[in-house]
């Protein structure tokens, strides 16, 4: 069974149609990359999948792990194993990263019928995951993303993903804002999380990330539609030629 099956998905933001018939299937273990010009609808797609109510699905169907996501609110999708690493992670004053992570991990565990982690188990888990995605201790103590640098926020997203152990990780431009070393660390973290039953949807503007996280499939999203799909070599072609041929055709 496919992990994610998107069929003829249409979606609007503020009554403006953005996604115009997306078809995409991700099987367990696969990494799919989406590339495309600014404003083409990449973040819209990730928000529709994650359950942001500002983004309205107007037609089509999305099955996550065989279940229609229309039946699931945002937090239920997260609990069912979907994870969105935000293009712009949100700052939350007054809640420490550790407290937030513990609440999240236990919410997901509760939904999945697993025991709640106590303080000790939770700390052990944090230590464990820090080996996968290196993150400074002071960032864990501070309020969620508050005053974090752009790169620190992105790394925190991946750390959260490691903690929540999702079935599907959607990475919305996680590479933007990262320095060369951080990019490497984040990519290594994602690669460490790759497994036969986990899938990834990686949104990026740069072929460079795909040197590290090698995708099985690459899709080009333009004007709310996937205009071309191919193997990892497609990313290299785009790097050379850009999106001009599609953008021009549409007269944009």
């Amino acid at each position: 069974m496919a992990l994610l099956e998107i069929k003829d998905l249409h979606a609007s933001v503020a009554d403006k149609p953005i996604l115009k018939g997306i078809n995409l299937t991700i099987k367990p273990g696969e990494v799919h990359a989406i590339m495309g010009p600014n404003g083409s609808g990449k973040s819209t797609l990730s928000n529709v999948l994650a359950g942001n109510e500002a983004y309205v699905k107007t037609a089509g169907q999305v099955l996550f792990d065989g279940q229609d996501i229309d039946d699931l609110a945002a937090h239920e999708r997260a609990c069912a194993g979907m994870f969105l690493a935000f293009q712009y992670p949100v700052e939350i004053a007054g809640i420490s990263n550790m407290y937030f992570l513990k609440a999240a991990v236990n919410a997901v565990r509760k939904y999945q019928g697993k025991d709640q982690l106590d303080a000790m188990d939770f700390l052990d888990m944090v230590e464990d995951k820090k080996k996968i995605v290196k993150i400074r201790d002071d960032l864990l103590e501070r309020a969620v993303n508050s005053g974090f640098s752009g790169g620190e926020k992105k790394r925190n997203e991946i750390f959260q993903m490691a903690m929540l152990e999702p079935k599907l990780g959607i990475l919305d431009e996680t590479d933007s804002g990262l320095d060369i070393d951080a990019l490497r660390i984040v990519a290594d973290g994602v690669n460490a999380l790759r497994s036969p039953d986990r899938g990834f949807l990686v949104i990026t503007h740069y072929q460079r990330l795909l040197d590290y996280i090698v995708p099985d499939h690459v899709h080009v999203l333009v004007h709310g539609q996937i205009v071309k799909s191919g193997g990892k070599e497609l990313a290299l072609e785009l790097e050379d030629e850009g999106y001009a041929s599609w953008v021009d055709e549409k007269g944009a």
Partner: peptide
């Protein structure tokens, strides 16, 4: 937006609201 962020991490809106409200006061 904060509430949505918490939700995408599995935290239900009732609990999320309580967390955000408490955080606001707790400062």
């Amino acid at each position: 937006v904060g509430l949505y962020y918490l939700q995408t991490r599995g935290i239900d809106p009732v609990k999320g609201r309580a967390m955000l409200t408490f955080a606001f006061a707790n400062e």
